[in-house]
Write a protein that binds this DNA or RNA. Structure first.
Lengths: 248, 248
DNA sequence: CGAAAACCTTGATGCAGATCAACTCGACCG
DNA sequence: CGGTCGAGTTGATCTGCATCAAGGTTTTCG
C-alpha cells in the first residue's frame, strides 16, 4: 500500500496540494526556496506511529496527504484522541524539544518535514510564517473547545451525530453537495478510533451507528460508506446550539 | 465588592502585575506607549457575564486580576467550561468579528482591553506581539488537550484529583511550598463551576470531594480551603501518566 | 483456496454517575 | 432577630454506557 505513496510527493512546492493552506501559505518564491533547503518528505503506512510522546523531535512539519491522529494515554491504557490531522495541518511545536503526544497514521500519510532549528530561525526573520501558524493554532484551539463540549456534555448518540456532521460538513464543501441537502462520504476511521475520538467504547460507537441507521438518520453501504439524506435532521441529533457552530 | 476593584488597576504598564507574562511581555517602553493609546481598563464583579457568545466584539484584552471562565452551552442548557482565564491570559481573537464563547467573571475581574482594529494594526508592524500570542495560544492548546483526556477518559474521582492537582501545582510555584510536599490553597470555583469544568454534576463533585477527604487525600477547612498532605498521593489519584504532564 | 487476523455487530449484565429530593450551614438584610 | 437565599452535603433511585461474551464479515496472506 505504501508503494503508491511516493506518487503523492510533490516534485516542487508549486505543485504541492497544500501549498495555499499550510504554514507556508503566504511564502513567496524566494522563501519557498529557503524552505526547500531545510525540508524533506517522509511517508508512513496506515497504522504506524510516526512519533511517540516524550521522544526527542528534531523536526516540525505539515501533513501533505492522508490522515493522522494525536493521542494521549493513561497508565492503564485508556486512550483519548486529542487531535485529528488532515492535509495542511501542522505537526510539532517550534521551541519545544520533546513531543507531547503520540502521532499515529490513520491512513497512509505523507509529511513535509522541516528541520526544527533552521525552521525556527526562519520564523524569526519571516514574520508571516508565525502569523500563519498563529491563525492555524487559533483554529485548532476553537476545534478543541468544540470537542470539549462534546466530550463533557453530549450523549453517545449526540457524539456520533456530531462527528458525522463534522465529516459531512467537510465533504459538503469539497463535493458541492448534490441538489437536495443529501451528503455522502466515507468514514476515515475504524470504530475503535472513533471511540477514542469521542470518549466512548467501540461497542457503543457500533450500537449508536446502528441506531442512527435504524432511525433513518443515515444510510450505510458496507461499514464505511455513509449517506445523510437530511443534513438538518443530523444536526438536530447532534444537539448543537442553533447555528451549527459557524464561527467567524 | 466592586469598590476595591479600581485599586488593582495599575497606574501604568510599568507597575502592571502581568507586565511580563501577558501578550505585551516583550514590548519596549515605546511600544507600551503605543499600546497605552489604544487601551482602557474595565472592572467586572463576580458572576457577571463579560461577553455573550455571538456578540460583536470590538476589543481584545488581557485579564489583569481575578478569574474568568469561557463556557459553551447546548440548546437545553447543558454547559461546559472550555477555558479558565487567569491573570495574564488573553481574551478574544484578532481577526474575528464575533465572540465564540461566553466569558463569565468567576471572581471580581479587571481587564486591560485593547481596541481591536488598532491592536490588529499594531500586530502587523510589531511581530513579537504575534509571536508572544502564538506561544500563549500553543500553551492553551496543550492545556485544552490535557483537558480533553480528562473529559473523555477519567473517572469522577480522577477528574477531581486532577483539578486539585492543577490548582495545587499553580500555588506550589507561587508559595514555595512549605518544607514537606504539603500544599495549601483555596478553591476559586463553586461546586457548580467545578462541575462545568469537569463535565460532571455538582452533586458528584461534592460527593467525590467528600470521598477524597474521607480517604485523607485532602483536608478541608470550611468549604473552600484545601490542604494536600501528600502531593504525590494526589497525583496518583489523578491517574496521569508517570510524569505529571510536564512538557517542554 | 483456506486460515488467520482485523474489524464489526449484537446480546446480557453491572455499575458509575445522573437525577430527584431533603436537609444543613452561613451570609445577608429588613 | 427571624427570614430568605445561595452554596453545599447527603441519601435513594434510575439509567446510559461500560464491560463481558459470542458470533459475523472482510481482508490479508501463506
Amino acid at each position: 500500500m505504501l508503494k503508491d505513496a511516493h506518487e503523492t510527493i510533490p516534485r516542487e512546492c508549486g505543485e504541492c496540494p497544500i501549498r495555499h493552506r499550510a504554514v507556508c501559505a503566504r511564502c513567496d518564491a524566494q522563501e519557498l526556496e529557503q524552505l526547500d533547503q531545510i525540508k524533506y518528505y517522509r511517508s508512513f503506512e496506515a497504522g504506524r506511529t510516526l512519533i511517540w510522546a516524550g521522544d526527542r523531535m528534531d523536526f516540525v512539519g505539515s501533513v501533505v496527504s492522508g490522515i493522522a491522529m494525536l493521542t494521549q494515554t493513561l497508565e492503564d491504557g485508556r486512550t483519548q484522541m486529542v487531535g485529528l490531522l488532515l492535509p495542511s495541518d501542522f505537526v510539532g511545536r517550534p521551541g519545544r524539544e520533546k513531543a507531547a503526544y503520540n502521532v499515529v497514521a490513520v491512513s497512509d500519510v505523507v509529511m513535509c518535514c522541516f528541520r526544527k532549528h533552521p525552521f525556527e530561525n526562519m520564523m524569526e526573520v519571516t514574520p508571516h510564517i508565525g502569523q500563519r501558524l498563529l491563525e492555524m493554532t487559533l483554529d485548532e484551539l476553537d476545534a478543541a473547545r468544540e470537542w470539549m463540549l462534546l466530550l463533557g456534555r453530549k450523549t453517545a448518540r449526540e457524539k456520533i451525530a456530531s462527528f458525522l456532521a463534522i465529516l459531512g460538513r467537510r465533504n459538503a464543501v469539497l463535493n458541492m453537495s448534490k441538489a437536495a441537502g443529501q451528503v455522502v462520504f466515507d468514514l476515515p476511521l475504524t470504530r475503535e478510533a472513533m471511540a477514542d475520538y469521542l470518549g466512548l467504547t467501540l461497542e457503543t460507537v457500533s450500537r449508536q451507528i446502528s441506531a442512527l441507521k435504524r432511525d433513518q438518520v443515515i444510510h450505510l453501504e458496507g461499514k464505511r460508506h455513509v449517506t445523510v439524506p437530511d443534513f438538518d435532521r443530523l444536526l438536530e441529533e447532534a444537539g448543537d446550539d442553533s447555528d451549527g457552530g459557524m464561527l467567524a
